[in-house]
Design a protein around this nucleic acid. Structure first.
Lengths: 230, 230, 230, 230
DNA sequence: GATGAATGAGTATTCATTCAT
DNA sequence: CATGAATGAATACTCATTCAT
């Protein structure tokens, strides 16, 4: 439920640079007011930010965006609430930072797949791709919690997806340089959905036919890749 | 004063009845007190309940479970807040009812596919299946918002998924009676993920290569089905 | 906590006549609006009113004035809520009626003591008086719940006490006709407090030295009476 | 979001310390979550807590537990509602604190009587005892309002009474060391009732024969004490 | 700066009372 | 008349955010 907004004093925008692939995952949400997290000046600050983000990730994943309280997050990070607000002037900013961090991590994973792409068989490529999302379990849970609870975050979500698609398309072209960019883009969209399916399966560890189902998904992906890259 | 434990005879809002699939998608939630939604007695009530559910669906879909306020839902339905509480003694109960309604609708759709299954080609079956989830756009959005925001709703979510899987498996066996139940179950899990992917694509209407991607997904599903049912 | 008052439509005032001693226990509370209970026309109505009052007594005694709900009271009496409002247009009126009923019962008890007074020894009189209040356990609990929870009921409470004092004084003069009225009145006030003490002890059945304490109270009352009536 | 279980070290607000009587009037109430009132850290807080308790006492006394609203209490104390909740996480906790404070004050008063007991005549002792309760008028009114309106507070009430009885018994033994403990305990129960009677009389200042009645009660108490301690 | 106490708008839920059926 | 569904003001409690220390 929306809470009173004490009109945060309009800080700067996101600064957490993304390494290299890292698409320019858009910045914030609501209009303009609260912006990006303040970059920690020293080593100590950097560690604290990491702890805060980790705590936030865990709490958001466990309770969802709304039910998570800034106080609990700070407590879990062993940091005073004032400190949390020092780096993340708003709950929304914190959520944004988390999403950005998640995006970065994903892009990094895709980047490694990209470098290997040329040497992989379609089957191996399918397996590698489907393994990307499930590898960041908690972060993904947190990211999903954020995405689903914050309507104003759809932009963020879109940026994230766009980045992923670009990354996947890049991989496809690395594997088959001849593939028309348009075609690669379309295939990336399809594959991303299958990757999400794999991740979803990974979230249900004790699912009846989970393992076979995952194999089935990989099988479908392989068939799809083989058929398309042929 | 504590509310009376109404012990509703819980006949499930379900009446649309799904042929033979219709899993009894559990209802539950917390302890005991606020149980199921009160069934409207008079005609006027029935209409009001429908309006309330529709409003709730829209608001949950738009803002998410937590951010949605009972007041807004009631207002959107043109009903006084007391009226909303007359039928849904708790926000959680309202959410449950919505989920149950969604589950019902889905099962009904799957049931119709099941009756036609035997006469469909693998390609047609793939297309029909992938068309199920996207058809209930708003309801699905609301359902997902609920599922992701309420930790105590995981059970609900599980029941819903289980029902869907059962329905899909039934369809597969209707199509290929020789298919081993275990195999059908595993395939259902895989297919459900692809169906969710199709739904996700449907939610992004202005997506760059959305159409091709959907075709790609259908293609993959067809390959998968053909290969497996062969 | 105060609730919205839908401005009850100004009915008539109390009618439940008090037999004979029954002091004119003042009528209602707040200004003037809701007044007395409607006298039941027929036998059926009389029974229903009795059931409602009994239910109200039990519920008020158990939960206190505020926590008791009109709905629960009606339910406990097996009567529809509308029926409850037929006889008691307001929760306050219901409370008033209960208090009046309690007063009546007490006055009746005192009246019987009065008729015997002349033939009793001081010790017997002490015992009889101290036995009055404890005899109406549930009713007293309800009455106290009402008195303590409704500031606007202080008047009612005062009237009740005044009636009791008058009754006790009458008893004293019946026993010792020579006793100056003023003296009897003052003694009545003292004795009433001791009677309340006895009732309080009766409410703590498993109190350590309850029996001895009650005996002590009777002893004190006897000493007091003997000393004063000498 | 659920409040943290603050597990306060519950040192009891008590500091006024009663000589040797001071019963540890338990605190309790429901399950666990909202435990004791948070002890103010800074000087400012200490003053605010005092103001809040005073306001609560006044409001509870005037309207009773249920009718009193947290908002009104905070307003009367000139404090924002959030501040009230900072120290008393629950209305029940606030009530408990008030009761504990009242118990403390009473025990302190009894303690002073105890130290003088040996030097007092029965008549003086009777007068001193009957003067204890009437001296804390508002606090007592509040305490009674709480006791009578909260079913879950019966325990609290019991503890309070037990403490008082112990205190009175201690006084009796201080006066007459030869008195058997059991006898003292029983007498304490009797005397407590008479003390309550005196307090009740004190609450009706303009009562017709109040003064004589109080004298009568003291007389009865004196007779009782003389007779028993002889 | 760092800290954590203070602030108050916002939310779910209740229930006395009415009045259409 | 009798009934019980409908109504909406009122209340306890939460928590993002600020700012005095």
């Amino acid at each position: 439920m929306k809470r009173f907004m004490r009109m945060p004093s309009q800080k700067s925008t996101a600064d957490i640079a993304a390494p290299n692939i890292a698409a320019p995952i858009a910045a914030s949400s609501e209009g303009t007011p609260p912006a990006g997290p303040k970059k920690p000046t020293r080593e100590r600050g950097r560690a604290r930010v990491a702890a805060l983000l980790a705590a936030a990730s865990a709490v958001f994943a466990e309770k969802g965006y709304d039910a998570a309280t800034m106080t609990e997050i700070a407590a879990k990070a062993g940091a005073p609430i004032g400190s949390l607000y020092q780096f993340f002037p708003t709950k929304a900013v914190l959520a944004d930072a988390l999403l950005a961090q998640y995006a970065e991590a994903l892009m990094a994973l895709l980047a490694t797949v990209e470098t290997r792409a040329a040497t992989l068989s379609p089957a191996e490529l399918a397996a590698d791709l489907l393994a990307v999302l499930p590898s960041l379990k908690v972060e993904r849970a947190a990211a999903f919690a954020l995405i689903d609870a914050r309507p104003d975050m759809v932009a963020q979500q879109g940026a994230l997806r766009a980045g992923l698609r670009r990354g996947i398309a890049a991989i496809l072209r690395a594997k088959s340089p001849a593939l028309p960019p348009e075609r690669a883009a379309a295939m990336a969209v399809t594959l991303l959905q299958m990757m999400k399916g794999a991740a979803a399966l990974g979230d249900e560890p004790d699912l009846a036919h989970g393992r076979e189902a995952l194999a089935g998904l990989e099988h479908a992906a392989r068939l799809f890749l083989t058929d398309a890259l042929a």
